[in-house]
Simulated assay, not measured.
Amino acid sequence: MSQSDPGAQLRISEIFFSIQGETRRIGLPTVFIRLTGCPLRCTYCDTSYAFSGGENMGISEILGRVAEYAPRYVCVTGGEPLAQKNCLLLLGALCDAGYEVSLETGGALDIGAVDARVMRVMDIKTPASGEVEKNRWGNLALLTPHDEIKFVLCDESDYRWAREIMSQHRLAEKCEVTFSPAQGSLDATQLAEWILRDRLAVRMQVQLHKVLWPNEAGR
């Protein structure tokens, strides 16, 4: 169990209720807590508005906002949530409150202290993301079957690179792996054909929320 400080503050970009568009929980009604700030600048980032701004909120206030939606699932995202040290307290408090909690992290920061009850969804940044050098490879040893790995792919070179990383680190044996096309950069059907051709043990995924609400940033 966590030892959460209900008065601990975090910088929050937004809290909203929507359909989970990614991960094994795709399609499920979910409350999203988007934290402000990110140390990365990926070429395909679609939430750059969360790099700054937002408002300071205490954990008890955040829990109150979440409870208004009476959800089962809560996703803590960003930006990069782990860039705020009190994110760890928030994750524990959400688990203590009985929610099924997931964390979306860019993989550049240590995930080792994240509450074991949280499903960690960790990006591995590809060359075309512009942030491949920021990958914290030590995180791979911390992943369990409860977690997920995500590659966002911009082109065929990214695909080949991700395929090699999967083989080199035996990622499919650690947890579920998702390949997603970067919107506007890689055709989803093309990616699906490569996956089938190479018989990769990955989940092919498009962002459902962008299909449902194509003109609403961040939703």
Rank of each mutant, 00 (worst) to 15 (best):
D5V: 03
G7V: 00
A8C: 08
L10R: 10
L10K: 09
L10I: 09
R11N: 14
F16N: 01
Q20R: 12
E22H: 02
T23E: 03
G27N: 08
G27Q: 10
P29N: 11
V31R: 01
I33D: 05
G37R: 09
P39Y: 07
C45R: 11
D46N: 08
S48I: 06
F51Y: 15
G53C: 08
G54Q: 05
E55N: 11
N56T: 09
N56C: 02
N56E: 12
G58Y: 01
S60N: 01
I62C: 02
L63A: 02
L63P: 01
G64K: 07
R65F: 11
R65E: 14
A67D: 09
E68K: 11
Y69K: 14
Y69P: 03
R72K: 12
Y73N: 14
V74S: 00
C75R: 01
T77D: 00
G78R: 11
G78V: 07
E80Y: 12
L82H: 09
A83H: 15
L90W: 13
G92C: 08
L94N: 05
G98P: 06
G98F: 03
L103A: 04
E104M: 02
A108D: 03
A108F: 11
L109P: 03
D110H: 06
G112V: 05
V114C: 09
A116Y: 11
A116E: 15
M122R: 07
E131A: 11
V132R: 14
E133I: 03
K134F: 06
R136Q: 02
R136A: 05
R136P: 00
R136I: 01
G138D: 15
L140E: 06
P145C: 10
P145S: 13
H146R: 15
D147L: 06
I149V: 10
K150Q: 01
F151R: 05
E156K: 14
S157C: 09
D158C: 00
W161V: 04
A162V: 02
R163H: 13
M166I: 15
R170I: 00
R170W: 02
L171K: 01
A172W: 10
K174Q: 11
P181I: 03
A182I: 08
A182V: 09
G184D: 06
G184A: 09
S185M: 15
A188W: 08
A192W: 05
W194L: 13
W194D: 07
R197F: 07
R199P: 00
A201C: 10
V202L: 07
V202W: 07
R203I: 15
M204F: 15
M204E: 10
L208N: 12
H209S: 03
V211R: 14
V211E: 11
L212P: 04
L212D: 02
P214K: 07
G218A: 12
R219C: 03
